[in-house]
Write a protein that binds this DNA or RNA. Structure first.
Lengths: 130, 130
DNA sequence: TATTACGTTGACGTAAACGTCAACCTAGTT
DNA sequence: AACTAGGTTGACGTTTACGTCAACGTAATA
């Protein structure tokens, strides 16, 4: 079963696939990050919802707040019809990109420091060995 | 005044330079991330403390918890004397690197999606213009 | 000597992001 | 009909990372 457009997930389905709790998923909805269809009471998640969740969790791994992820999600929604709206979205794109580039930079610095530290340690271990 | 080894900072000095509050700095100390010298009651921060703070804030920008940053800081301390300790540090180095690489990957995906979205929007704006 | 600047230690408050019940509904199975 | 598996909505609790007082100390300056 691959991700064709008609695939539908239950809440526990998603919880399992992403290794989070159903409580978390409902919480994201209450915060305006998700808005699944309903069948009676039960929530039905589409492929789009799945993608949105993936985006949220990616954001979390990068330390983005739910509010920030919600903004991103809004940005990707095709509700913007007039020119002014588009301009705002383009500005948001730039902001997000800048944030991500700062994070990239931070990561590179951290990786460099890790490398240096590793080298130092291995040198100590080597000299000890003689 | 550049960063020679003897430069000393007051708490409000650091707060200004990093644009955080003194409360925050004291909080980091209470959580075991900093341990400045004292002059009577007053805290005196060395160049090492400065560097540690920089590391903490870099971690924050990447969504690392204070506990994680504290582990990193511990890792960089030259207290480890026996082989087993060094081995543990090397493992930690690997873990940290993996985490950072995951984050790098997440960033690249996000940047790609931003690019695609920007392109789509600009296409719409272009076709509208005709 | 009084004020001002800068620092200190509690103690309590708060926002974000959930966890943890409890009480309930519903559809299918024994 | 009773049970089980999954789902629902509150409501309250918890952790992290600080903010916000209050009450006090100390050193330099007016």
């Amino acid at each position: 079963m691959k991700k064709d457009k008609t695939t539908i997930y239950s809440i526990s389905d998603l919880a399992q696939r992403f290794d989070i709790t159903t409580r978390t998923i409902r919480f994201y909805e209450s915060e305006g990050l998700l808005s699944p269809k309903r069948e009676g009471q039960k929530r039905l998640y589409s492929q789009k919802d799945y993608t949105t969740l993936k985006l949220i969790l990616r954001g979390k791994r990068l330390g983005w707040s739910l509010a920030e992820s919600r903004d991103l999600i809004q940005m990707y929604k095709p509700e913007q019809n007039n020119q002014a709206q588009y301009q705002k979205v383009l500005e948001k794109v730039i902001e997000s990109r800048e944030r991500l580039q700062q994070q990239m930079n931070d990561i590179q610095v951290m990786l460099l420091e890790l490398d240096e530290h590793e080298t130092r340690i291995k040198e100590v271990l080597d000299t000890k060995r003689q």
